[in-house]
Simulated assay, not measured.
Amino acid sequence: MDCSDVASEKELGMIFNNRFPTKNFHSLKVTRNGKLKTLPKGIFGENTFEEVLFIEGALEVVQPEALIGSASTLRKLQIRSHQLRSFPFGEVGYYRNLDRLYLGNNKLNSFPRIVSTSLKELNLAQNPLKHIPAGGLYGMPNLRVVYLYSCQITDVPAGTFTGLRNLFYLTLADNNLTEIVPYSFELHTRNSRLFLASNKISKIAENSINGVSNFLNMNENNLVYLEEDVFRPLLEGGAQLSIESNPLACGHDIDWLVRSKKLLANVVGRSACSNGTLLTKLGSTDYVLWLSLFFLLFALVTQERR
């Protein structure tokens, strides 16, 4: 059912007060509607939906029990690109079949407390959340996909993603992260992917990123050094690393990387040093020989001075 042209909340309520051949609908869709500002309690009467999609509009408030009639049927709820600032997160658990909640590009200004064993995908991207509270995701143990990009997030507490045994896709790209503390990110599934591009990360602690088995995107950050304790376990586990547009010094800190063709093969894209030299070029035979000679000469000079 497409109700994109309704002129007001009152009109939408009147539509669903009518008698229909069935009360059970697959989908309700409202697109590019600038009239609806609130979804009040009971607006859909006894009608139920499997999907509810509000895409691009002026919706600001979803009142408690606005969708409660679909508690046993709703599988996907999307309110994207609205002005949403109030949503009844406390009743999400009542929607026992809801596995996809997409609330991206709205005005939600704090991380919600959600308890749901059915949710598998959560999108809160492009909301000014700023902070993830410790344990903020613990109430959703079956999450598989989480979108938190462009949320102005400044830090990720240790253990934030611990216990999410099915999580395989996580993005916190385009935030304000500067440092990754131990046990900030833990993924546990095959083909797991983590996106941290377009932050301000300059420091990554040992054991701060664990279990990424497919792809780690660190593009457009402030990393100067590739710490062996951080990146070797990921590359040895088969994960590909993209680290473009970082001011990498490419000194002795990457000796462990360029000496291993196997590890270097997992560095993808045009990842380069601050001087523009591609990391893949550093793995050439000539460079490795030069590096070996450099350290040999350095050792000899040091010994003579002693």
Rank of each mutant, 00 (worst) to 15 (best):
N207M: 09
L278K: 15
R270T: 13
D255W: 11
I243V: 11
L122P: 05
E244Q: 09
Y225M: 04
N217G: 03
A71I: 03
L103A: 05
L279C: 05
I243W: 00
G135W: 12
K29R: 08
M218A: 08
M1I: 14
E60L: 00
N207H: 10
G276F: 14
L36D: 04
R75Q: 13
L170E: 05
D5N: 14
N207T: 06
L235M: 13
N207P: 00
E206W: 02
L119R: 12
N106A: 08
G93E: 03
V156L: 04
R144A: 14
I43D: 02
G136N: 08
P247D: 10
S274L: 04
K76W: 11
N219K: 09
L28D: 02
L172A: 09
P182N: 11
P233M: 13
I43T: 09
R113W: 03
N210D: 11
G251C: 09
L282Q: 12
E244C: 00
A71Q: 07
T277A: 06
D155P: 00
R80G: 00
S192K: 01
T117M: 09
P21R: 04
S242E: 15
Y138S: 15
V181C: 09
N199H: 01
K130W: 03
K37Q: 11
V212E: 12
L297S: 15
D174C: 01
S8Q: 07
